[in-house]
């Protein structure tokens, strides 16, 4: 269906250009790219779960280049300290004074690789920055970059020696993306292309394709009808009254769902949210905010299957 409502046409075009730019570098992960863009426009952070080698770093690098922002990466390890993330004050012998060393969080896009490998206090330091978007060092509060988005990754297969993120901290991520292997055809394209070209090597186009701050402001202006808001809340509430889930999602999930639906509408080039936008974002928004009931887990059902089951029980609105 071609929606022709285009009040934010220029933004939609810019977003489309950015999407194409990232997709041209990260082959076969169109859905992941779309969801990352949604999180960027919604002003949230992303938790990415997938095995290593699927191009997560490339995604962030390319995206940073596309938005004209800075990119930094932290490899989380068990001995990583909070200061290694946020920064610290150190004495400079040459100047005979304390100088502030900003940590890698002072950037626009931060890739927190394997976040669950660091102990809880280091995780908490990052999660605090994600929430507050500022760091307090030596009594001074400093804002991190704008836009600011953390893309944290988790490896689903190696759980030995990891520190699982608590539910309250998981809630800080606006969406969780499951990144999977590309299709065979895409993998052939990746192999052919990157056998000759370095991953880190750019294609020469590092120009800013979109003003993210402006796009985020435009995103906030997208119309959400009351019926659509009610539908989003109904979907989230459906996770609470079921025996399939041990814990349902909280009100923060409803807010996140509507923010993501707005962002998706903007990407689709329309200035209002439809129930389809909400429905499309329900899995990424809710999958890390709910906990399966033990018996469901024993039965081998996944979170996505349970959520799809719940989706089918909530009536879609017809305003």
């Amino acid at each position: 269906m071609n929606e022709t409502t285009t009040p934010g046409r220029s933004t939609a075009d810019a977003l489309n250009a950015l999407r194409q730019h990232v997709n041209s570098r990260l082959i076969g992960q169109q859905q992941v790219v779309d969801q990352v863009l949604v999180a960027l426009l919604a002003g949230g952070h992303v938790l990415i779960e997938g095995v290593p080698g699927l191009g997560k770093t490339l995604l962030v690098q390319t995206l940073a280049a596309g938005i004209g922002g800075k990119f930094k990466r932290i490899q989380f390890t068990p001995d990583l300290m909070p200061g290694d993330v946020t920064g610290h004050v150190m004495f400079d012998m040459s100047q005979s004074k304390f100088v502030l060393k900003q940590g890698p969080v002072f950037t626009n896009l931060l890739l927190a690789d394997e976040i669950n490998r660091a102990p809880a206090k280091t995780q908490a330091a990052l999660l605090e920055v994600m929430q507050e978007r500022q760091v307090t060092l030596d009594g001074k509060s400093m804002e991190v970059g704008s836009p600011f988005m953390v893309l944290a990754t988790q490896n689903p297969i190696e759980q030995e020696g990891t520190y699982a993120l608590p539910e309250a901290e998981l809630d800080r991520f606006i969406i969780k993306i499951n990144i999977d292997y590309p299709s065979a055809a895409d993998e052939v394209a990746i192999a052919s292309r990157y056998a000759l070209e370095n991953f880190a090597g750019g294609d020469g186009s590092s120009s800013q394709l979109i003003d993210v701050d402006a796009a985020q402001a435009q995103c906030a202006a997208i119309v959400v009808d009351d019926k659509v808001a009610e539908y989003a809340v109904e979907l989230v509430r459906a996770t609470r009254g079921t025996t399939l889930l041990r814990h349902g999602a909280g009100p923060r999930a409803s807010i996140a769902l509507l923010r993501c639906a707005r962002a998706l509408a903007l990407i689709n080039g329309v200035d209002y949210v439809t129930p389809d936008d909400v429905k499309q974002m329900i899995l990424p928004v809710l999958r890390h905010r709910v906990i399966l009931a033990p018996e469901v887990e024993i039965d081998g059902l996944g979170v996505d299957e349970v959520l799809r089951n719940l989706l089918d029980k909530v009536d879609a609105p017809r305003a």
Binding site: M1, Y272, A319
Partner: peptide, 16 residues
């Protein structure tokens, strides 16, 4: 039906 759905959604949710 696509066109009808588009018009309906624009009116119902976009108030246009």
């Amino acid at each position: 039906f696509d066109e009808l759905t588009r018009v309906w959604r624009r009116l119902a949710y976009g108030h246009q």
